[in-house]
């Protein structure tokens, strides 16, 4: 496979690669943001639970 020709995209490199790059960034953010959200939610709930149990004892 000819890599330089692959990256040149027949002269349309700027357009093709920025389109794919933009899509990649947006899709990645769509994966990263919910996963981080999940972590903070779990952390918050477990803190809440610990507080709750500490209260009872």
């Amino acid at each position: 496979m000819n890599w330089s020709r692959f990256f040149a995209m027949g002269g349309f490199a700027v357009y093709v690669w920025s389109a794919y790059g933009f899509a990649a960034v947006v899709l990645t953010l769509n994966v990263v943001i919910p996963l981080r959200q999940r972590k903070t939610i779990l952390k918050r709930i477990s803190r809440f639970l610990r507080f709750d149990q500490g209260d009872q004892s």
Binding site: M9, G11, V16, A19
Partner: peptide
């Protein structure tokens, strides 16, 4: 017609 740009 569109060359490689159609790959978008």
């Amino acid at each position: 017609q569109q060359g490689d740009s159609y790959r978008i």
